[in-house]
Design a protein around this nucleic acid. Structure first.
Lengths: 182, 182
DNA sequence: TGGATCAGTGGACAATCTGCCCAGTGAGTC
DNA sequence: GACTCACTGGGCAGATTGTCCACTGATCCA
């Protein structure tokens, strides 16, 4: 039994887990705009039945499109006003894992990616001041397996992290699907 | 019962807007773990009165520590499985602003920072495939004022974006405050 | 020292929302 | 044509919310 009926009719198989329609997008947009809204209120605003909204939400959560409603905490409001991106070179013998592990133990390290290119890891860190950033970087360098680091400081953030434009784009263009005409 | 006796006593003026105490941290942690929890349930779990939780939440929101409860959308679940970091060099004459503006119009650009170092801007972008990434980068290059770009692809994300460790760290160490003994 | 201020408690209220159930309709599938 | 599925509109009991209140302790200040 396939639980995605008429939708799967129009939607190519390989996309069906990763596509949302206009109503989904509007729902996400609405929740993004007024996060503490209840299901009932959403249904009113969207002009659909409550059950529909409830079902849509459940599905979005089940599919992993919406991963949660965690409180968005601003590091800046906690005094961590300095953001920096630190790229690391590591000793390859050790592998990425132990290093990532070590980095994860530093609270100021908010995010770690392994990357292509000249470096091995890219992480986003915050600190209270530039001087404090030095302390954090020192901690990073102290992680076993880290050979050297290179940092750039984020001076400003003209576009803060956002996903909405993407969400609104998907149902319209099917997320630009897979290349049709190269 | 003195739950939070000396808070304002010990906390230096300049920090009080950016400091949270243990209860705040536990509240944020709780909400992060089970986002859809109500105020009442939180108060039960934390062992405090409902009014207290309500007041704390209001204050955290008012101070901007918690900026919202937006639904966390996973670009990957929408089919955008490729993440890349693109650094841009821009034509200085134009200034950052118009470029940021242009970038903001591209849905796949999730985040833009102005940075120190050899480049001018750093942005996080997503795409559906590596080929699709090329399309996005082309759009970026097309933005007026962009001179050249350089991209690295995120292969893996051993530490996804998180703030909790930071939140839990603040009340314990006062966020390492301002440098005491240099 | 006394008064003011503030955070927290415990209780109460009406209004609202939630989770869950149901039967019916229309659209698309096999 | 039979079937499946999303959606609708409704109903229900139970829980939660927003908002009051009076009272307690602790801190701050003149």
């Amino acid at each position: 039994m396939d639980n995605l009926p008429s939708e799967s009719a129009k939607t190519p198989e390989f996309l069906y887990t990763m596509t949302i329609d206009d109503l989904d997008a509007r729902l996400i947009g609405l929740l993004a705009a007024e996060p503490r809204l209840g299901v009932l209120e959403c249904s009113r605003r969207l002009g659909v039945a409550r059950g529909t909204v409830q079902a849509r939400l459940d599905r979005l959560l089940a599919r992993g499109v919406i991963t949660g409603f965690g409180p968005d905490v601003s590091p800046a409001a906690l005094g961590y006003t300095v953001t920096a991106f630190v790229t690391l070179e590591i000793r390859q013998e050790a592998g990425h894992d132990p290093v990532s592990h070590g980095l994860a133990r530093i609270p100021e390290v908010l995010e770690v990616h392994t990357i292509t290119g000249g470096s091995d890891l890219l992480c986003r860190v915050v600190a209270r001041t530039n001087a404090d950033l030095q302390r954090v970087i020192d901690q990073i360098v102290d992680v076993r397996g880290v050979r050297r680091t290179s940092s750039v400081i984020a001076l400003d953030t003209p576009v803060p992290y956002r996903v909405l434009p993407l969400v609104e784009d998907v149902p319209r263009h099917g997320g630009h699907q897979y290349v049709r005409s190269p």
